[in-house]
């Protein structure tokens, strides 16, 4: 099939950027969206032009490296699918497709469709971990976890940190990412010792990074390739309220 692509081109962080139109032809419906961009980049390279920069790694939908806004929707039209797993059969011959990077102050554009998502790492560094002895894995049954908690924790642990929630949020908030990480750890026994300092630290890091505030709209969960439920945000809020009420430093409370 033949398509018209309108792609955001930006030479570097200081370039204002603009949409550039590229026609592509003979695209197989079995190609992934990124393979379609590979075809375009081949053409651009042969023509001596600068290929389009975009992030990708595993191309199996599990690493969280890829991500672009396709026709105004993060990761494109297919539900619960990263853009690398999106196939061209979901588009029709003659379509015009708009491709833009994640747009957020906290995700500055490095080049074209590549953004710096280091602020998500900063949120993790502010509490998204557990203090555990390193070494061989402990016996799995030594600490029992309720099945319901294990399932909910696993559901949140599926977050790949791609940043689609931020891209889709009308407020430019990373609250779904934050909620997934907090839920994942706060539901498990290993996450309990740092439970309250974690939530405060991560929320502070989120706000300092320049992400917006959550107003519970739900655009994030709708585009999330891992379908992190919006209810995790309630768990984040509950932990946060508990943390600000807790009398830290008072033994036995």
């Amino acid at each position: 099939m033949n398509l018209t692509l309108r792609i955001w081109r930006q030479k570097g962080p200081d370039d204002p950027g603009r949409m550039v139109t590229y026609p592509v032809s003979d695209i197989s419906p079995d190609m992934s969206f990124l393979e379609m961009l590979d075809v375009l980049n081949e053409q651009l390279t042969l023509a001596g032009e600068d290929p389009i920069a975009f992030d990708h790694d595993c191309r199996e939908g599990i690493c969280g490296a890829c991500g672009m806004v396709v026709n105004g929707v993060a990761h494109g039209p297919q539900k619960a699918t990263t853009v690398c797993q999106l196939h061209m059969r979901h588009f029709s011959d003659g379509d015009t497709i708009d491709i833009e990077p994640w747009r957020a102050k906290a995700f500055p554009v490095i080049k074209d469709l590549v953004v710096n998502r280091g602020n998500l790492d900063r949120i993790i560094a502010a509490g998204g971990y557990i203090t555990a002895p390193t070494g061989s894995a402990p016996e799995a049954h030594s600490q029992l976890v309720r099945k319901a908690d294990a399932d909910a924790a696993f559901e949140s642990a599926a977050c790949i940190g791609c940043g689609a929630c931020v891209a889709a949020c009308p407020n430019g908030s990373a609250t779904l990412f934050l909620a997934a990480k907090v839920t994942h750890l706060s539901l498990l026994p290993q996450g309990q010792p740092e439970r309250l300092t974690r939530v405060v630290g991560m929320v502070d890091a989120h706000d300092e990074a320049g992400f917006g505030g959550c107003t519970n709209i739900g655009e994030c969960s709708a585009v999330c390739p891992k379908e992190i439920p919006l209810s995790t945000i309630g768990r984040l809020n509950r932990d946060y309220l508990r943390a600000v009420r807790a009398r830290s430093g008072t033994p036995g409370t």
């Binding site: 949409m19 806004v69 708009d98 833009e100 747009r103 957020a104 407020n171 430019g172 917006g212 655009e219």
Partner: peptide
């Protein structure tokens, strides 16, 4: 919240459908 939202997305999307959830 509105001011933070505005500051959090200084460059707007060229192609942006309306919020479809609600």
């Amino acid at each position: 919240l509105a001011r933070r939202a505005r500051a959090a997305r200084p460059v707007r999307y060229v192609h942006r459908p309306k919020v479809h959830v609600s």
